[in-house]
Write a protein that binds this DNA or RNA. Structure first.
Lengths: 129, 129
DNA sequence: TCGTTGCGCCTACAGATGTAATCAATCACG
DNA sequence: CGTGATTGATTACATCTGTAGGCGCAACGA
């Protein structure tokens, strides 16, 4: 079910999201470790990662826990919550709040592979039980 | 199928998107007309709408056609294209490019109503033919 | 003890975005 | 013909975002 009493979660930018992914993958992590995981393909400097981390802390999406003279960072915002809000937001904005329309669009634009279809079919069947 | 040779469509912001929606609903329109349709619930001033329109023109998402001393604006970017890119972007970013995962998420978060399910089911059956 | 180094915090700065006001040209009405 | 309303163009300006650099302090190794 995730989350309970949010503090009106401030919006998280795309770059910040990448950092969150790292933390969702493993936590707690030091800034350097996060940089290692993310900066890699993003080509970010350690400084950049640090900035993003502070912003996330300010937005209360990440918690810090002192470890000697440095911090260990852990996600406060749960992935499911983030993903849920973002998805709902998109469906709202682009599909008048109707998920079926999104689905239809993906289907029509051939964004759905055969295996996607099977999976969804399976999920559907599952839900019907 | 829509679109063919895009000019690397520059990203359209959320506010700009609202303006596009107005134009997708009906076009061509004058700036004042767009403002009438959009500024309404957004609480935007005519000036704001004009700014957004120019930015959209600059981004080549909207075309202008002179009509006396003013312009008539029409969408250049097709809705299907926009919606498609945005959806794909989200699926990519949040679901590792797997639409089925998005679907699973919507399902799990109870964002899918019974009628959504039926609709999707119907679409699926349709595609299978 | 003392220099080196790693860390968080503060500052920077350009470009995007949201939201407008102002300006100069022009059209429409009296 | 004069004048107010209209219109696109230009300018404004606070935030947010992406991307860092630099500073001061504390810990660790010699």
């Amino acid at each position: 079910m995730s989350s309970a009493e949010e503090v009106r979660p401030e919006r998280i930018s795309e770059a910040e999201h990448a950092v969150m992914e790292a933390l969702w993958g493993q936590a707690p992590l030091t800034a350097a470790e996060v940089a290692d995981k993310v900066g890699h393909d993003r080509g970010w400097s350690l400084a950049t990662v640090k900035t993003l981390l502070s912003r996330l802390v300010a937005k209360q999406a990440v918690a810090t826990q002192p470890d000697g003279r440095r911090f260990l960072y852990s996600p406060l915002l749960e992935r499911a919550d983030y993903v849920g809000t973002e998805s709902k937001r998109l469906v709202e904005r682009l599909f008048g709040g109707r998920p079926a329309t999104l689905f239809a669009h993906l289907a029509e634009s051939e964004a759905l592979t055969e295996s996607d279809l099977s999976e969804i079919e399976a999920l559907l069947k599952e839900m019907r039980k």
